[in-house]
Nucleic acid binder design. Sequence first.
DNA 1: GTGAAAGCGCTAACAT
DNA 2: ATGTTAGCGCTTTCAC
Lengths: 367, 367
Amino acid sequence: MGKSGRPATLRDVAAAARVHPATASRALSPSTRLLVSEETAQRVTEAAQRLGYRPNPVARSLRTRRSHTIGVLIPDLNNPLFPPMVRGLEDRLAERGYVALLGNTDAHEDRERTLFDQMRARHVDGLALATATLHSPLLAEAVEAEVPVVLMNRIAQEYPFSSVSVDNEQGEKAAVTHLALLGHTRIGHIAGPQETSTGASRYRGFAAGMAAHGLPVADGQVVYATAYSIEEGQRCARELLDRDGRPGSPGGLTAIVAANDMLAVGCYGALDELGLACPDDMSVIGFNDMPFIDRLRPPLTTVRFPHYQLGTEAAKLLLERIEGDDAPVKILYLAPELVARGSTRAQSASGLTLPPSRVSGALPGER
Amino acid sequence: MGKSGRPATLRDVAAAARVHPATASRALSPSTRLLVSEETAQRVTEAAQRLGYRPNPVARSLRTRRSHTIGVLIPDLNNPLFPPMVRGLEDRLAERGYVALLGNTDAHEDRERTLFDQMRARHVDGLALATATLHSPLLAEAVEAEVPVVLMNRIAQEYPFSSVSVDNEQGEKAAVTHLALLGHTRIGHIAGPQETSTGASRYRGFAAGMAAHGLPVADGQVVYATAYSIEEGQRCARELLDRDGRPGSPGGLTAIVAANDMLAVGCYGALDELGLACPDDMSVIGFNDMPFIDRLRPPLTTVRFPHYQLGTEAAKLLLERIEGDDAPVKILYLAPELVARGSTRAQSASGLTLPPSRVSGALPGER
DNA sequence: GTGAAAGCGCTAACAT
DNA sequence: ATGTTAGCGCTTTCAC
């Protein structure tokens, strides 16, 4: 802060260093510093220091047409998946002098449109999109406006956008393998909403996993949730157990693969209602490894989803596109990781529960 | 978007409407629209529409020295308290055309300083601070720089800052009352870090509650956590139970009031270790009503903290100070609410557990 | 190596 | 009611 009260400008620094403002500008910008004699550069730097000069990013943006601002669109910050993702993104962006403008769409189409427009108006240098309902108009506009975009946990093949997602199919397949190695053969699936890419790909992973282990999937063995909520999980689990008979009864399920942790928590509720115990009567496995999910009784076995890294990687890809001259579009997949906890347990072929075994230790990527 | 490719500027609009740019500016700004004839205003608006004109907020900021941006400093977005708070803030700010710049300090002093400076450099119109380690230098600087500030869940009497917080003392007192009405008399407290305002005020609330019910507090009956973490909760609970003897033994505790939910979850862990059951052997009560805390076994009785409203109210107070000419500084307290769940249960004077009773229904504000 | 001049897009004071 | 002028603070040609 200058003595004067109002913050020092480049002009003030130039005056103090007895040079032209343009020279001061050159001396202070790392990229142009070599255009200026070492001696004057020194003098300017020192003057800036003395006056507590801080460049005005607004003026700079006006001139350079770069705002050093990234728009981030997510459905809802309260969904526990997003805070770590956003932190990853912001941490990485901050390192490079960017800040994030966050918008919650609540999966509302017009809210999404409004936020998109507002961010464009604020001249964001790039966009990171994690919204579930991502409609082509937005993407097409982004292409036309040449705004760099990175997609988080979403893929849009038809657009030239980098994206980073977790390999959901592979993760859900690993979940099935985990159960299969524990001796389960009659495994149900609570699928996520099929219009979401996670719901669809995890369902594919489930089917692929079952097929890989030669396990049949009967009609009633999959129930589709209409939302990723505890209530839906409970409803679907109820339906699954009704249809296929309770565990213990012939042909009854012995395990449920839920498309995410919330649905798995719903399973716990349904099992409670029916007086069944997890994992004794039924093994349950989730997806995401949400915070505190390891504190439930029993601690939930789940497929960990590296949320924070999803954010940092997305930031990297986006910055590449923004700053690199010719960075290619990249489609990045992060490997999920099975986390075995107390909600899954070995099962004999006869339908009797076995004591916990070490067989699960053989799974790659497990901890 | 104009045909030309590059976005339309005010100049373009003015040209299209055959008026001077200044007139176009007046016609487009709600506050100055009355200075212009209805007819030309119409013409300008239409031209703007046609050209897809969007004002450049950067240029506007440079001119008006208002950025319509608010800096928000929190310790860590991953802490489940903050997402709802931030959403409340952002939702309210968005209504008024403001956006939030979010910064995570991780309770790191220099990180806080860096972020503070960056936000000042970006000319935020105001600051919302929820950082735990809030040092006077920052506050003093904010005063000097005349940046409006609102404190969230913090109070700094010595500064002219509005603040909104939950009445922690009152909330913790209600927790004690809940237990007292259930018949508990030997109640321990796991206090939060005493250098945080929440830790200190909840401790006061605990003491006040005990006093109000004529219950003595022996020396070993309070243990101080050094952090709001599950691990610390577990450590403290262990210590509490060691010191005062297990429940059942004469003089042993029958209930624990933890200064927040994380610490309460730690209690669950310690009870598990010792082979004790909650609520049969020991009642436990938390603070915050974190998401999913109602899904633990047993569901945690806790003091609900209206996080979202804390955010919305903070936004209101801040905008008042920014936009109002002479809005006074306000210190706002939000009332907490006791949420009775399965982790607390009635206790006879003799130390025997009674079946659940309805007595707790009498508590005001309970649900 | 440095200075001069111009301009990013907008708005506010002043003039008419 | 509208046009003129100027300038927010910075960077970037272009001269010298």
